[in-house]
Each structure stands twice: as structure tokens, then as C-alpha cells.
Write a protein that binds this DNA or RNA. Structure first.
Lengths: 316, 316
DNA sequence: TTGTATGCGTTATCAG
DNA sequence: CTGATAACGCATACAA
């Protein structure tokens, strides 16, 4: 392994000069700097992150915590994780996935990335001793990253209107969480502006729950109805049941999903959906946490990223 | 932060004794050992892994490399990753996900976990300077973990026979890789033993490719046929197309998938499938790599885990 | 601007 | 069996 000292010898300087070239290049003369940089190149020097970490009282590790009890096979999270990994890689940070709740405080690490947080978890956050960023909007002052859920709701609703569907119904998730209300708000606002009456169903986030609600209420849905769904899971169930009812999708009935990860593409009909830039969100999440760690825990605020509408086969 | 020295003071010993209690407890008298352990308890001492890593010339980081060009949203890998995380957590190891091929040698780490390797990658492995374990069978002497693919093929085929399907057809993936051949071998052997003639199609691993092959050949398939598929993706497509052909599944046609992660449950018909214990495989993968690192890279051999058959709605 | 000394928390080595 | 010392690679504080 090539160390600072090796470089220092080669460049005929002390190892501190080398260290400075790396961390505070402005403090060293151009002449020496170039000499040192050349030596680093020739020796293919790479800093030892472990040694840096030790002296900086850092670990270069962050924990990824999934609070939601969900199926971790949900592809959604895989994308997020890769985005996070990308963000962390710039500073050579590594991830520990927390699989047991008991591991949350275990070991050495510099901070948390937390996903699947519910309002009921807020008390828990206040006891955390290291900096953290949430994935998912909240309005209690915790730093977070999310897609702009309200904007997403608007996007879907406006598109349904533009395709001249006459009745626009929202099929939401029955959780009392900000992300859900924000999507609904985007839907409601847009309808009101267009002098239409909002109509909302709230169900469990499963395709069969969606099938159920369509089955039970199908007689109430006139032709030219578009369903704005709060997730692709729900949208998949809606499409499936509409087809079972021999309804024509997308000619008579439209369906718009939300998320745009994997599920939207395995559905029998490729879904029109509000796509979250999950990878990018993961990257941002990582960047924010690293900055927060650098700044010794100072607040980072919120970061909302705009989702986009992907037009496919479930709308006309 | 509580250090060795703090514990040492409290226990009135040198820090070396404390260190020994942790690493070589047999070298210290019972009396002192208990004293030290008590002090550690009272102070809630936890070793600093970074300092350990520095002195041991370790990093406590392993890289997770996905060579396959696949959609990283494939849920399969999420489970694997969580299994790996579990395995690594015992020694407080962290993961770096490699998203760019260029990052493979970047930074400091102790070894690799490699998935999605193809035969064409073998040359690449020989240049790796750190220990690695492959996920996925190979027969070139590289250490690996996989499910027992041949056993899985047998399992599916035997079950189809036991359900009295008369024709049993294998829909495989058109890659020349050991995992595929092993699954096929399990199928072929079982049929031969039962004096039936094997029949194999090989297609791309996509549901629409599966739909295609069923569509084009449907007239050749008599009632009482069971399709043994090399993946749940393929099985999903087969089911969908059979339904489109108005064929009765599972009464007249059976379908058995392979993998048992996520997809098998979102299919319209819940799939009978050969389920891989992915989480466990991930854990094993981590354990093997940690052991290999401990043993300075000595060979670990292969680890085959038996898959199991999950009986659901796509077989009678 | 550059170099020297010191310490981060741990473990190996060797002395007692 | 136990303790003092040095070392891992780097960065901060201070001196030159």
C-alpha cells in the first residue's frame, strides 16, 4: 500500500505537505503542489479512508433504515438504494442495511438514511444521536427528500382532463400520511379549478384491494372515467378488474398510476404513470446526509424533486 | 466515546488486558476477565471498528458488484442484498454497491461479492486483487453460492408428473450458463427416468417472449401439458398467453415458475414456483466472504442450497 | 509556506 | 499472565 510517506519521499517533502495538497491545496505553493501531484500519480496513491476516518472521528458508514414493515422485495427500494450508493460513492462511504430494529444503534456509523417513516415514528427520531435525513415528506421539521407529490397529483389529473375523460376519480391509499394527502390535494385542486367534483376512494395498497373496489362499484362508473391511482400497485389492480368487467381500456376508461418503478412495466397493459426519479432522489438523499455530517448536524431542509408523466397504454 | 483506556482505568488494568479479553479471552485469568467484562458493561463500551480496521489493515467494507446489465430494479437482488447485509452485520461490515464498472477497484475495501457473472467474465476475475465470492454456479473453480438448480429442475418436473400432466415441456432461457443447463438437466433426468421425451424451448428471459412462444406453438400443445419455466418472468408470460388462448389453467395446462421472489405473487394467477431461499443465500455469501478474508483468500469451495416448491394456483 | 510532534483507538510484539 | 511500547495512516496544532 502506498502511503503519504511514500509520496512525500518521492517528492522530497514532508508528509504534511502531501496531506495539505489533498485537503488544503491553497496552502501550498504551486511548485510544490505540482511536484506532489506528480508523485501521487506515479505511485498511484490513494488515501486510506480508514486512517482518515479514525483521525476525523468518522466511520465513512451510514445506515439505511427501512421502518415500514413492507416487503423489502419492493423494487422501488432497490432503485433508491442504488441512487444512494451513487451519492455515497463520491466520498467512498459505505452502507449498512438495517434489517433488525435492534441494529439501529449498533456499531459505528456517521448517520442515517431513513425510509418508510410514519408519523408515529417521530418520537423515535428525537432520540437519535446521529444526523439523519428522511426519505418521504413530513411537516414536522425533519430534513427530507421526496418527489413533489402534489405536483404529481396535478400532473396526472391535468393529463386525464386533456384526454377528455369526463369523470376523474382518485383511488388513494388509506394511510394518514403527508405523501398521500399531497397527491390528493394535487388532484382536488386541479378538479376544482376545472369545476369538477372530486371523488376519492381510499384502500389498502394492494392490487387485489383495487380489484375489489372496482368490482363493487363498477355499476357507478360511467364511460369516459379516468382513475388516478396513488400507486402502480393499485393501478395494476384497477386495470385488471376493468378488463375482467369487459370494459374498454383505454378507450372508455383510463388509468394512471404513480411511482413508475418496475410494476408499471410488468402490468398486462403498460401503465401511464407518474414516474418518480427515484435514483436521483437516492443520490440527493446521500448528498444531503453527507453535507449534514460535514456540518455537524445542521438542518438541511427539504428537497422536492418533480416527477414526470409517462404516457403509455392505459390512457387514450 | 468510551475507549479501551477508559475501561482499563475502571478495571485497574492496562488496556492490553482489555483488548485481550475481547480478542483472546483464554489468555487472561478468570478473575481479571470478569473484572474487565463488568467494567465494559458499566461503561457500555463498544469497540471502535475503524481503529480495529486500521491496525488490522482492513476496511470492514465489501463491494457488491452486479455484472449483469440487468435492470437493477429486479426485486430478486433486493432480497439478496438484505441477506448479505444480515450476514455482514455480525462483523459490522458495510457494503458499497458498485454502479459503474469503473468503481470496481476504487477506494478501500476487503473483498467482493459478485453477481450476474457470465462465462465471459472469468478472465476479468483472474485480475481481481482481493478475495471474492460469486453468486451463481460456475464450474471453473471460483468459490460460489447458488441454489441447487438441478434439484430445482427435478422438483418442478416431479411435481408436474405427480399432478398427472401427460406432457411436460421446459421453457428455458437462451443463455449458455451453468444455472440454465443445471435446471434443464434436472428436468431431462427426471423425464428420462419416467420414460418420457424431453422437449425444450429456449427464449429471452421476458414475459413477452414467453407469450410469443406459446402463441406460435399453441396448436402443438395438447391438453394435460405442464410448462416448467426457468424463471417466474417466463412463467408469467406463459400463464398470460394461455389465458388469452382461452386455455384452462390449471385444469388443462399447468405452469411452474422458478425464483419465487415478488413476481410470482403479482402475476394474475399466483404461480406455483421453485422458490430460492435468496435471503439465506445472501447471508451465506456474506459469511463465506468474511471467512475468506479472515483466511487471507484461501478457497471456500461451493455452497448449494436446496430450493423448495411452492404450490399455488398455476398447477392443479 | 513548510515541517515537527502528537494523537486518533486498537493490536502485535516483546519484556517482565 | 500481564504490561509497556511501537505501529497502522492520516490530520491538527504548533513551531520554524
Amino acid at each position: 500500500m502506498v502511503t503519504l510517506l511514500d509520496v512525500a519521499k518521492k517528492a522530497n517533502v514532508s508528509k504534511m505537505t502531501v496531506s495539505r495538497v489533498i485537503n488544503h491545496p491553497e496552502q501550498v505553493t504551486d511548485e510544490l503542489r505540482e511536484l506532489v501531484e506528480q508523485a501521487m500519480d506515479e505511485l498511484d496513491y490513494h488515501p486510506n479512508y480508514v486512517a482518515q476516518a479514525l483521525v476525523n472521528k468518522r466511520t465513512n458508514v451510514v445506515k439505511f433504515v427501512t421502518l415500514e414493515d413492507i416487503d423489502t422485495t419492493e423494487p422501488y427500494y432497490m432503485n433508491l438504494l442504488f441512487g444512494i450508493a451513487r451519492g455515497l460513492s463520491k466520498k467512498q462511504y459505505a452502507i449498512q442495511l438495517v434489517t433488525d430494529r435492534g441494529q439501529i444503534e449498533d456499531g459505528n456509523f456517521d448517520g442515517y438514511l431513513i425510509t418508510g417513516a410514519r408519523s408515529s415514528d417521530y418520537a423515535f427520531f428525537d432520540n437519535l444521536k446521529k444526523p439523519f435525513i428522511l426519505f418521504g415528506e413530513n411537516h414536522h421539521g425533519y430534513d427530507y427528500v421526496d418527489n413533489n407529490n402534489q405536483y404529481g397529483g396535478e400532473l396526472a389529473t391535468k393529463y386525464a382532463l386533456s384526454r377528455l375523460y369526463q369523470n376523474i376519480i382518485f383511488i388513494g391509499i388509506d394511510v394518514r400520511e403527508p405523501f398521500e394527502y399531497s397527491r390528493e390535494t394535487g388532484y382536488v385542486n386541479t378538479l376544482q379549478k376545472n369545476k369538477k367534483v372530486p371523488q376519492i376512494y381510499r384502500i389498502a395498497n394492494h392490487s387485489h384491494a383495487a380489484q375489489e373496489v372496482i368490482k363493487n362499484n363498477f355499476h357507478k362508473f360511467p364511460k369516459d372515467t379516468c382513475f388516478i391511482c396513488a400507486s402502480d400497485r393499485i393501478a395494476t389492480g384497477v386495470v385488471r378488474q376493468l378488463q375482467d368487467e369487459k370494459a374498454k381500456v383505454p378507450a372508455d376508461f383510463g388509468v394512471i398510476g404513480y411511482d413508475g418503478v418496475f410494476l408499471d412495466q410488468v402490468s398486462n397493459l403498460k401503465l401511464t404513470t407518474v414516474k418518480q426519479p427515484i435514483f436521483k432522489m437516492g443520490e440527493l438523499l446521500a448528498n444531503m446526509l453527507l453535507r449534514k455530517i460535514d456540518q455537524k448536524g445542521s438542518p438541511q431542509g427539504e428537497a422536492l424533486i418533480k416527477p414526470s408523466l409517462v404516457k403509455r397504454e392505459s390512457t387514450r
